[in-house]
Amino acid sequence: MNKVVTLKAFFEEARAGRLTAIRCGRCGELAIPPKEFCPACQERAWDPVPLDGHGTIASFTVIRVPPRGHAEEAPYAVAVVRLDEGVSLLGRILDIPLDALKVGMPVRFRPLIRDEQTVIAFGPA
């Protein structure tokens, strides 16, 4: 059975502090929703899988020239985090000094809530 996780559902869960991935019922590929076909085997049989939110920084940057709408926040860090289950997720880094950031540093998911919007973020592990 294919259980679709919509973006709306993903971010509602994230707002409550929970991350959801999807696992392919055929090849076991783990992915971040939303997707219909499995990019690895083209099967269409996803199952939602909770992620525990722990991971390490795979790469990061400090944005010093932000797009419109983020001016007051700059400088801020954005990282791609490799989660312990094997998938990656991009998000803001919170409560870690910018000059302390390193590839391989352990971090933990937490939502960054701005009014109606939920942004993926990571803080100290």
Binding site: T61, V65, I120
Partner: peptide
């Protein structure tokens, strides 16, 4: 995912 996080091309 990426624009809300404040991502830019640089």
């Amino acid at each position: 995912f990426e624009q809300p996080a404040g991502m830019t091309f640089p």
